[in-house]
Design a protein around this nucleic acid. Sequence first.
DNA 1: CGTCATCTGACTTTCTTTGACCTACGAAGT
DNA 2: ACTTCGTAGGTCAAAGAAAGTCAGATGACG
Lengths: 156, 156
Amino acid sequence: MRLSDSIESFIKTMLNEESTEVELKRNELAEYFGCAPSQINYVLATRFSPDHGYLTESRRGGGGYIRIVRVVESGSQRLMYLVNERIGDSLGENECARLISQLKEQRIVTPDEASLMAAALSSRALGIPVPDSMKDALRARMMKSMLMTVAARNGK
Amino acid sequence: MRLSDSIESFIKTMLNEESTEVELKRNELAEYFGCAPSQINYVLATRFSPDHGYLTESRRGGGGYIRIVRVVESGSQRLMYLVNERIGDSLGENECARLISQLKEQRIVTPDEASLMAAALSSRALGIPVPDSMKDALRARMMKSMLMTVAARNGK
DNA sequence: CGTCATCTGACTTTCTTTGACCTACGAAGT
DNA sequence: ACTTCGTAGGTCAAAGAAAGTCAGATGACG
């Protein structure tokens, strides 16, 4: 098992129990997992970014800390943000996958819908026939189109 | 016996025992068969493609893996028919819409899923960025990809 | 022999982990 | 107040670990 994954799930467990907010000591955590402290930053950057639905703040010096907050947003807020701001006219594959899995975690779409979306937008699906430069543009349009559909459904 | 065939049946055995899903390490498998790692990709591409009823996903880097999911029972002809014969490698917009509404009628997908699919495949989503000749090819691939996903869900 | 399927190896891309160095904060001394 | 020092977190680049790609070699089979 990947170290990063262990750290990720460790933090998520804390977030589930103590709900919506955790505070931790970077060095202690690194010590606990027997890794470099900067590893913690890596995990935060790759798994607790705003795209993943989290905010982090921290403080250095004596008594320093890192605080992680799980953002709670209504479904339609999130969808509007994604459609109008977050997704411009280009959306990379990994970014796309991340957004979809976050929508799933926040229960804005069902797991089945999430896999359907992922299937439609996977590079395998967009695969051969489209020149590379266009894939991201295409993904952005399709993603927005699907999100609007979800929004319409949720609205009615 | 051909190497590819050995690898193929090795994987299929795993899929029969541990049922419907395997995770493997490309390098280990290549080591085991004493071949180049890229040989594994060849086998995946030629024998475990979606057209054959399988989905694959993978991850690079430390702790990377390849996961193969068997989606279609070798008996289930209906879906393979859709995937291989009916759709082929080109799917026009009207035909596509017809197909989706059929799937809905037959309760293979929910109404919500149907609209999601329609949204992804609408000409508006595929709109400007893609040269006309490619749209149908694209639709075909996306449709198949989504169908496979639906099949994966219905199978379990 | 010609063609299609199979194999290989060199090169690329992506993800993870570590370590060296940097910056900020607080408290203790002057 | 001002300096200094110890404690924490931040940054970044380089090394490491897998998997992906693709052109060309090799082989099987009509």
